[in-house]
Design a protein around this nucleic acid. Structure first.
Length: 596
RNA sequence: GCGCCCUUAGCUCAGUCGGAUAGAGCAACAGCCUUCUAAGCUGUCGGUCGGUGGUUCGAAUCCACCAGGGCGCGCCA
């Protein structure tokens, strides 16, 4: 397997630098970069080596750059190297060095861009984790896509990834679900009870009124007849029915959520039940561990500053000393009635992930949970004092759904909310996934149902897909003219590439060659959206080259009178398609073969 | 009151551990189809990177303070 051209240049730069500065500290070497230039006149590759190493070398940057440039001239891949600006070294590659990237891409196929940057570290990415109280709605969508793409990205960058869904099946929400399902059960049995009366009899009131629970009620009635209801079909003692109804309802809701996830193309490796963790005593065990480290105490919190809750009164609670790890206040683990807070359960959840070997835990949350981050990170620090595990949180800001510029209202209360399924039916899975990755996750985004279906350059989904379709179109035509064998990747990988001399062609190769370092940088930053922007830029390069074939016949890909040049350009086109597919696969988007 | 996130062209947004003259799309204007899909391409116009200081060879990027927007702040999850 040949090495990426930028990675190779970095090695060459480091070797040259070590020749000049024999005792180069590792920390400095790690900061040396060799990457694509922004300006064509700066050559193909620029390195900051002289700038970062000047101090260690006890030389002015410009002088060190000159010495490094002289040393690099010996590299056979380098046509010219010269010091520039405050201390850069600009490198112009021999075309053959760039050309070599194409067979490398063609042989790797969609594996192109994979790296070992993650060093096989174990990463647990937890995302979606919707309450099992109903089908997925649009609010879950962004986190699902971002989490899934991030997991793909980390896997590509050489991490061992576990994709986890944490089922919140133990809290008050699930109790409310059970009551709501019980209401539908009574209805299925033609109970004389009316909704208002049931609402009044339900602890906390009837919370879930959506139609999707009718099916749950019907299933309960089929399976249990009237045995869960009181004589006269009123509300029986919850001890008789509550667990049964809750289990059935949660199971059916989880089945619905899994179907929704499958429709979105999201697959998890592990589904962890909060209830099961509780039953196994995981919460108490985790609290014991913290108590053993003297991080738990009984105390009374200061009232929050500013707006005071109306019913505030100081009460003793079981508290975790999160302030020792940088949080603002200590956080309660048990409510004043002695039951556990959600925080306590979440501690058990993360302790469980660590016990299963996670070195890096990445939770994808809605931005409204932002205030929760410091306490959770504090707990992980407390549970892994040696730094053997850490928690990172990716926050996803809200997505505003628009239709023709007008906001689409969501009303969860009446059960008329916009579901994920509605969205998928409206615009399709690939569009949803791509658009969700066209913003940094912590920036708010607007999702216009009309705009994302437009077939213009301003719609990045279309624009990237169109570039891929054009690549495939050229290759189809070539297969007709030259035979399928001639355009097979392994054959194109052997093609002589000397004909690729045009600046646009070489620029496209430079772009393609930048993909591996883009993958590494995006994985490092936990920012899958960078893939989308890269593909957009790549598509622009390709569309430009395509159109230049109109003005300059020498740049047309297929030319009967120039078989060798044609093969070279087909290799470029095929490699472009490969990189687009490779990027799309990280995003979980299916490439299209042709536009219709 | 406190904490976190955000502020880049008229609009929507990129900006690769601090790097060279801050980049795209839209909008506006001017061009390109006997030729691999014009669903595309090319060019022009457009910026005190919210403000003020600081750190250094160098700041949109790091730090401090200020202004504006969003989210959150015990017994919800």
């Amino acid at each position: 397997m040949s090495v990426n051209i930028y990675a190779r240049m970095r090695e060459s730069v480091l070797a040259g630098l070590r020749g000049i500065v024999p005792d180069l500290p590792e920390a400095i070497a790690a900061r040396v970069d060799a990457g694509p230039t922004r300006e064509a006149e700066h050559g193909d590759v620029a390195t900051n080596a002289a700038l970062v190493a000047a101090k260690a070398a006890r030389m002015p940057p410009a002088k060190l750059a000159a010495a490094l440039a002289a040393a690099l001239a010996a590299d056979p891949d380098i046509a010219a190297a010269e010091p520039a600006g405050p201390g850069f070294v600009n490198i112009r590659l021999r075309p053959a060095a760039l050309h070599a990237e194409l067979p490398s891409i063609l042989r790797a196929g969609e594996a192109y861009g994979e790296s070992r940057a993650g060093a096989m570290r174990r990463v647990n990415v937890e995302y979606v984790s919707a309450n099992p109280t109903g089908p997925m709605h649009i609010g879950h969508c962004r986190g699902a896509v971002v989490g899934d793409a991030l997991a793909n990205l980390l896997a590509k960058a050489g991490y061992r990834v576990i994709r986890e869904f944490y089922i919140n099946d133990a809290g008050a929400q699930v109790a409310a679900l059970a009551w709501a399902a019980y209401w539908r059960y009574l209805q299925a049995l033609d109970s004389p009870l009316d909704e208002a009366a049931f609402d009044a009899a339900t602890p906390g009131g009837l919370q879930y009124r959506g139609d999707y629970l009718i099916e749950v009620g019907a299933a309960l009635a089929r399976k249990h007849g009237a045995t869960l209801a009181a004589p006269g079909l009123g509300i029986a003692d919850p001890a008789l029915w509550f667990d049964t109804v809750r289990e059935t309802a949660v199971a059916m809701m989880m089945a619905a959520i899994r179907e929704d996830l499958a429709a979105l193309g999201v697959v998890h490796d592990v589904f962890t039940s909060e209830r099961a963790l509780l039953a196994a005593g995981a919460v108490d065990a985790a609290i014991e561990r913290l108590a053993g480290a003297d991080l738990i105490y009984e105390g009374v919190l200061e009232p929050p500053k500013g707006k005071l809750p109306e019913d505030w009164e100081p009460r003793p609670q079981t508290l975790f000393r999160s302030t020792r790890f940088g949080d603002d206040v200590d956080r309660p683990l048990r409510k004043s009635d002695g039951s556990n807070t959600y925080f306590a359960n979440d501690i058990a959840c993360h302790a469980d992930k660590m016990a299963r070997g996670a070195e890096i835990m990445i939770d994808v949350w809605g931005a409204d949970h932002g205030g929760y981050v410091p306490r959770m990170q504090a707990v992980v620090k407390a549970l892994a004092p040696d730094g053997g595990a850490k928690l990172e949180v990716v926050l996803c800001q809200i997505v505003h759904i628009l239709k023709g510029g007008e906001p689409v209202r969501m009303s969860k209360r009446a059960g008329t909310f916009v579901t994920l399924r509605d969205l998928l039916d409206e615009v399709g899975r690939d569009v949803v996934r791509f658009i969700m990755l066209t913003r940094k996750s912590d920036a708010q985004m607007e999702f216009d149902l009309d705009a994302v279906l437009a077939q213009t350059r301003e719609n990045p989904v279309f624009y990237v897909q169109y570039a891929h379709a054009r690549c495939r179109s050229v290759l189809r035509l070539a297969a007709e003219q030259l035979g399928a064998e001639a355009v097979a990747p392994e054959r194109l990988a052997e093609a002589p590439l000397g004909a690729l001399t045009d600046a646009g062609e070489l620029g496209l190769i430079r772009r393609l060659a930048g993909f591996p370092r883009l993958v590494d940088a995006a994985a490092e930053a936990r920012e899958p959206h960078r893939i989308a922007f890269f593909l957009y830029d790549l598509a622009a390069d390709f569309h430009t080259l395509w159109n230049r074939g109109r003005d300059d016949a020498a740049l047309r890909f297929l030319q009967a009178e120039d078989p060798e040049g044609t093969r070279a350009r087909l290799a470029l086109v095929a490699a472009t398609a490969v990189v687009i597919r490779s990027g799309l696969s990280v995003m979980g988007v299916t490439p299209v073969e042709e536009m219709r």
